[in-house]
Amino acid sequence: MSAAMPAQPSYPRFSEIVRHFAPGWFAAVMGSGVLAITTLTLSARWPLLAPLAWSLHYFNLLLFGVLAVPWLGRWLAHRELALATLKHPVQVNFYPTFSIAMLVIAAQFLAFGGQVELALLFWWPAMVLTFVFSFAVLYAIFGGEHVGLEHVTPANFIPAVGLVVIPIAGAPLLGHLQGSARELALLANVVGLGAGSLMYLGLLALTLQRNYLAKPAFGPLAPTVWTHLGPIGAIPLSLLNLAAQLPVAVPDGTLLFASLLLWGFGAWWVVMAAMLTAAAWRRGMLPFALSWWGFTFPLGAFVSASFRLAHDASLGGVELFGIGCWGLLLAIWLLTLLRTARGVASGALLRPQP
Rank of each mutant, 00 (worst) to 15 (best):
F98L: 04
V344I: 14
T336A: 09
A278W: 05
F98I: 05
L173M: 01
V164L: 02
A188K: 06
T340M: 11
F112K: 12
A7D: 11
M5P: 11
L290R: 02
S197K: 01
R74L: 10
D252G: 11
H151L: 14
A160F: 07
A101V: 04
A249I: 05
G264L: 01
A155L: 02
L48Q: 07
W123P: 07
L237H: 07
A4G: 03
H88F: 08
L86E: 13
R308I: 11
L103Q: 13
L118M: 11
R19V: 06
F59A: 11
F321E: 01
M102Y: 09
L221S: 10
G322C: 06
T39Q: 07
H20N: 10
L61T: 10
I37L: 14
V18F: 01
Y212N: 09
E150S: 10
W263Q: 01
A301Q: 06
N241G: 13
A258N: 04
A101P: 09
V132Y: 09
W54Q: 08
I168D: 02
L330P: 14
L290M: 01
W54F: 06
L255C: 13
A107P: 07
T340H: 14
S10A: 11
A243P: 01
N93H: 02
T85V: 14
V165N: 01
A171C: 01
L149E: 12
P125C: 06
T97A: 08
S99F: 01
T85W: 13
G143R: 15
Q178K: 06
V318F: 00
A185Q: 02
L110M: 15
W46L: 11
Y95T: 11
F265L: 07
V271P: 00
G343Q: 14
A258K: 09
D312W: 04
P12G: 02
F302W: 12
P236I: 04
L177N: 03
N156P: 15
P23Q: 00
L229I: 05
L260M: 13
I323P: 05
A278S: 11
V164W: 09
D312L: 15
A305W: 03
L204W: 08
G192K: 02
E319P: 06
L52G: 14
M275P: 01
A126S: 12
N211Q: 11
G65M: 03
A279F: 00
Y139R: 12
V270P: 00
S291H: 09
N241L: 10
V92Q: 03
G143L: 06
G343W: 10
P159D: 03
L338A: 13
L129G: 11
P6K: 05
L239V: 14
P23I: 00
M275H: 14
